[in-house]
């Protein structure tokens, strides 16, 4: 630091007190509605952290009744038992279900394999869903499902040009993330068909 910069004396960390003290409580109360309403740390809702809750939040059980239908429900191996309540939104199915079941049954949450298998299951699930949508006669519609119409209805170009958005640097990647697998699958299909045709002709 130059002598000019130190003209007012040493910077705060080199001395015992802040050289620019905070505004007074009176100044802050006048400027900020509600300033200091929760000033006392002991009187904040989440203090202290671990404390016995006598109110029990309306629960009227020591251990909840168990939700039926959990015989095949996947669970983390770090759970000693199936939880008494669980979601049933999208049960495991097919190849993606097998991959996910392996992740849950074989690896704890502390193992990277657990999460990588689940992410692999997600991709398999997505590919399977797209394939089924084609076969069902109601194929996925990338244009409507990506909501790209928002670029027109909500000033896409102007919004991206406004200010100095740092995320604009990678905006072009987003369509690649969405369309990339489709393009790769189409290219794979074309190459596969060509290979089959050549084999059949030879």
């Amino acid at each position: 630091m130059s002598a000019d910069q130190r003209a007012g004396g040493p910077a705060t960390p080199h001395v015992a007190h802040k050289r620019r003290p905070a505004p007074t409580a009176e100044e802050l109360r006048a400027r900020i509605p509600g300033w200091g309403a929760d000033l006392d740390p002991a009187d904040r809702p989440s203090f202290p952290r671990l404390v016995w809750q006598d109110g029990r939040s309306g629960a009227h059980w020591d251990y909840p009744a168990e939700q039926p239908g959990g015989q095949r429900r996947e669970r983390s191996v770090e759970h000693a038992q199936l939880t008494p309540v669980f979601g049933t939104a999208q049960p495991l199915h097919g190849v993606s279900g097998a991959v996910r079941r392996l992740a849950y049954s074989r690896y704890s949450e502390g193992r990277l394999a657990h999460w990588l298998l689940l992410m692999a299951g997600d991709r398999v699930d997505a590919w399977g869903a797209h394939a089924r949508s084609v076969l069902s006669g109601r194929p996925d519609q990338p244009l409507t499902e990506t909501g790209v119409v928002g670029e027109v209805t909500h000033h896409g170009l102007a919004s991206r040009r406004r200010g100095n958005r740092t995320d604009a640097r990678h905006h072009l990647l987003d369509p690649l993330v969405v369309a990339g697998p489709w393009v790769a699958a189409a290219a794979g299909a074309v190459l596969g068909v060509r290979a089959l045709v050549r084999t059949a002709r030879s």
């Binding site: 928002g150 670029e151 919004s159």
Partner: peptide, 14 residues
């Protein structure tokens, strides 16, 4: 219009 909503929010449009 949920797809449009997600796109607008995700891309921080408008």
């Amino acid at each position: 219009h949920i797809a449009e909503a997600y796109h607008v929010f995700s891309s921080k449009l408008d």
